[in-house]
Design a binder for these strands. Structure first.
Length: 310
DNA sequence: AACTCGGGGGT
DNA sequence: ACCCCAGAGTT
């Protein structure tokens, strides 16, 4: 059973840049953080740039947050970029500039949680462990539990359950292969069971592919939220080039927006930028943007509404 | 356990 | 209009 997945992976694995022989553990770590909640088609080009520009943790740690955010481009969740830089600084300072071994140590680094620690351990260090991402979880639930979808978050019990399927020998290929199978064949919406190498072993397929009546955490609102504003502000700053992420230049950035570009922005953002202009105080603006970029919005606006200082 | 945190592409 | 994506951190 595991063999079928491993063999399928050997034939069908995508040619992703971080799968090239010779990729460092640092390269693997960067790819995993970039891939958190972001499709790999968007990750690949950024990864190439990052590894060329910052080939070791110390190189990234020496860069400014602004440079890092700019290079992150529009991968989303920019706090990941800041945390990755912090993790790089810790690796450079405390681990001789080498990605440490051991999931517990890895998890102590900023932005590295259960998934990323396990992925680095398996894919970079080749140590046997249980990797659980949304793809692997879905594949395991379908094959072995006859369920269409896993719970929103993995429990301790699920981890123990999943660990029993990890083979002793080709564990890296099993982890990578089940993940790839979930990404390419056993997809959430329209699984291609006719192409599946383990269809004959799949309890879910045998049961007629029943869809779990599972509740999805009601999708977050977007229009009018702080997230929307922060995203728009970051986009404006990125468009200003290398200096654009400097917090003291936002006023100029907002003022330089022409009417056409401004009209194209969502209403809440137009209003926000109008207010930023009215504030007039570069100090206030700098504070706002510093909060936005640091993700230091400790006080979250009630109802997730936009809140500006002043 | 429930929320929060970006952004783009697919359906 | 949703849905999905190699999740992590906070409350």
């Amino acid at each position: 059973m595991q063999r079928a997945v491993v063999d399928w992976f050997a034939e069908s694995a995508r040619d992703l840049p971080w799968r090239r022989p010779g990729t460092s553990a640092w390269g693997v770590l960067v790819s995993e953080v970039m891939s958190q909640q972001t499709p790999m088609s968007r990750v690949a080009p950024r990864w190439e740039e990052w590894l060329h520009r910052w080939p070791t943790p110390a190189d990234l740690a020496a860069a400014s947050p602004a440079e890092v955010l700019l290079a992150w481009d529009s991968l989303g969740y920019p706090r990941r970029a800041l945390r990755l830089r912090e993790a790089a600084a810790a690796i450079a300072a405390d681990h001789d500039n080498v990605v440490p071994v051991g999931e517990e140590v890895l998890r102590s680094l900023p932005g590295i949680g259960p998934y990323t620690a396990a992925a680095v351990t398996s894919f970079a260090h080749g140590t046997r462990t249980t990797v659980l991402d949304v793809n692997i979880r879905r594949v395991l639930h379908r094959i072995f539990a006859g369920r269409s979808h896993p719970a929103p978050a993995p429990s301790t019990r699920e981890r123990a359950w999943a660990s029993a399927f990890v083979p002793q020998r080709s564990h890296v290929e099993w982890n990578a292969g089940t993940m790839e199978l979930g990404a390419l064949v056993c997809t959430s919406r329209r699984p291609a069971c006719e192409e599946c190498p383990v269809a004959e072993h799949c309890r879910w397929l045998a049961a007629g592919k029943p869809i779990d009546p599972q509740r999805k955490p009601t999708t977050q609102a977007w229009n009018g939220t702080d997230r929307q504003l922060r995203g728009a502000v970051m986009a404006v700053l990125r468009s200003c080039g290398p200096a654009g992420v400097r917090t003291d230049l936002l006023t100029a950035s907002a003022r330089e927006l022409d009417a056409e570009a401004l009209a194209a922005l969502p209403d809440p953002v137009q209003q926000a930028i109008a207010r930023v202009r009215e504030l007039g105080s570069s100090e206030r603006v700098a504070r706002l943007i510093a909060d936005l970029i640091d993700d230091g919005l400790a006080e979250r606006a009630a109802g997730n509404r936009l809140r500006l200082p002043g």
